[in-house]
Computed example of a mutant assay.
Amino acid sequence: MTQSLSGRPAVAFAMQPSRTQHVLPEALIQRLATIGRVLDAAPMQRFDDERATKLLAETEILITGWGSPTIDTAALAQAPHLKLVVHAAGTVKGLLGDGLFDRGILVSHAAQANALPVAEFTLAAIIFAGKKVFRFRDLYVADRNRKRTQPIQAEAIGNYGRTIGIIGASRIGRRVIELLSPFDYRILLYDPMVSDAEAAGLGVEKTELGALMASADIVSLHAPSLPATRHMIDAQRLALMKDGATFINTARGALVDEAALIAALKTGRIDAIIDVTDPEIPEATSAFYDLPNVFLTPHIAGAVGLERTRLGEMAIDEAARFIDGRPLLYEIRREDMALMA
């Protein structure tokens, strides 16, 4: 970057503290203070008050996180020296206004850091689904004996030789594929943006979505939520799934026609592990809460607790690269926005 007038670039933060515990622990703030001039370690939660006006007037690097106000035209007008925005979280949709790119301000994010716990959660979900862990748990707890669980062990369950279908070679999808590689799985991939050669390099079999849905024992969804992908998993595609197959969604709820999924689940023919829904919190009467073949979690696959520190580390690494004049590793360009989740 061009040299700051003060020698070290001025850094400020914008995020909601109640949603970003562990993202920037004191050790990371201290590290940042050795390469930049931290204006105030307390993050801004709005850009339209007196404190924000003073901070933004000096800010050259803005580190944002969950709960940050939108960096719109009004905010940019108060930040004449802003050169870099680093989002210590995943998607930047809803955070950035077009004016930011118009001014040539660089943008980066920590989506790669958030991808790691999602992929780990997905790996655990796949292993548990393959072994029908939740079914065993429910029967064992209900019966307080093993009369019904022991015969199930002889069924065609377990994780040897199973077929896993991955929908979307996103950051998370690719990491899931990597984590699955030591296991004895056959891995199918549907992603129209991936070539046959690239799929071969990933160690997967590229296929069409219908063929994947019909062939996989476990289907895991990792596509971006775009207008073109809304309800890509619909009644027709769910009907293709094998009896006893499991559908996993750690991506976005809007990718799935949830009425169709609930209808399929009510037949008992398939199972589901669901971390995301549309709306984000289902209605209190939703069948997702009550169906015995659904394992529902409250959007926890991504970074929670101490996993959030990875987000802060990656954001500060990017800020350090910028200050040193090195290329950003995770730069977001205007044209990337249309394909981002």
Rank of each mutant, 00 (worst) to 15 (best):
S4E: 15
R308H: 01
D184N: 07
L240K: 11
P69G: 06
R237A: 10
D290E: 04
L84N: 08
G104D: 03
I270T: 00
I281S: 06
P117R: 09
A111L: 02
A199M: 03
M193A: 12
M314F: 07
R174C: 14
P25R: 12
A199C: 02
T149S: 09
T73N: 14
R252W: 13
D275W: 02
A111Y: 00
D40S: 13
S225D: 14
G201P: 04
L188C: 06
L5M: 12
A77L: 14
T309N: 01
T297R: 03
K242W: 05
G268H: 09
L28Y: 15
G7I: 11
I157P: 10
P117Y: 08
D278H: 15
A41E: 15
A284K: 09
S181C: 02
V294E: 13
I233G: 06
L212P: 04
Q150Y: 11
A33C: 03
D275M: 01
A301K: 01
R162H: 03
M193H: 10
F322E: 00
G130W: 15
R269N: 05
L55S: 14
L179W: 11
G312W: 08
G67Y: 10
S286G: 12
I63H: 07
P151D: 10
G268F: 05
K93H: 11
L84T: 04
A154E: 06
F128G: 13
S4Y: 11
A287R: 07
G312A: 06
D196R: 14
E280Q: 07
D49M: 03
K147I: 12
I262P: 09
E155M: 13
S181Q: 15
F288Q: 07
A223H: 02
R321Y: 00
P182S: 07
H87R: 01
L100R: 01
A259N: 05
A260F: 08
D184I: 02
D290F: 08
A79K: 01
R19H: 05
A156G: 03
R310W: 05
A251R: 15
A315P: 08
K83L: 06
R135I: 09
V118N: 00
L76Q: 06
Y289T: 08
L202W: 08
R321L: 07
E198N: 02
S170Q: 07
E335N: 13
D290A: 13
F47H: 12
P43A: 05
R252S: 01
F134L: 11
G312Q: 03
N145I: 00
L240F: 01
I63R: 00
V276T: 04
I127L: 10
Y190K: 12
T250Y: 10
L329M: 10
Q21A: 15
T267A: 07
T163Q: 04
G36V: 15
E208R: 03
I177N: 08
A214C: 02
F288T: 05
P117K: 08
S4L: 12
R334S: 14
A303K: 04
V294W: 01
M193F: 12
N159I: 09
H81S: 11
